[in-house]
Amino acid sequence: METSDRLIRALQWVWVGFAFFLVGGIIIWIVHLIRTSWSLDDTLSASIGISLVAIPIFLVFMGVVFYVFWGVAVHGRER
């Protein structure tokens, strides 16, 4: 593999890592809000109810991004 190819491959991992960082950060934030409402005894049900919808949606985004990255950039190139 040439140096430029290695660089491109590395940057692609950074690119997908950034997407994970972004979506992962939002999920961690939502979990933090649940924890805060738990510790303050502040209508925990609302936080859990909303996060039960929100977190799976963000997980699906992560799944789609990784599926494309793996299918196109990693697996697709090897075929």
Binding site: Q12, V68, F69, G71, A73
Partner: peptide, 24 residues
Amino acid sequence: KLLYSVLALGWTGTEHQQRVLNRA
């Protein structure tokens, strides 16, 4: 070239790549 190479994710238009992308 570098920008487009990174963002293109090594796309060559193989059948497998097209299937993955269409599904996503």
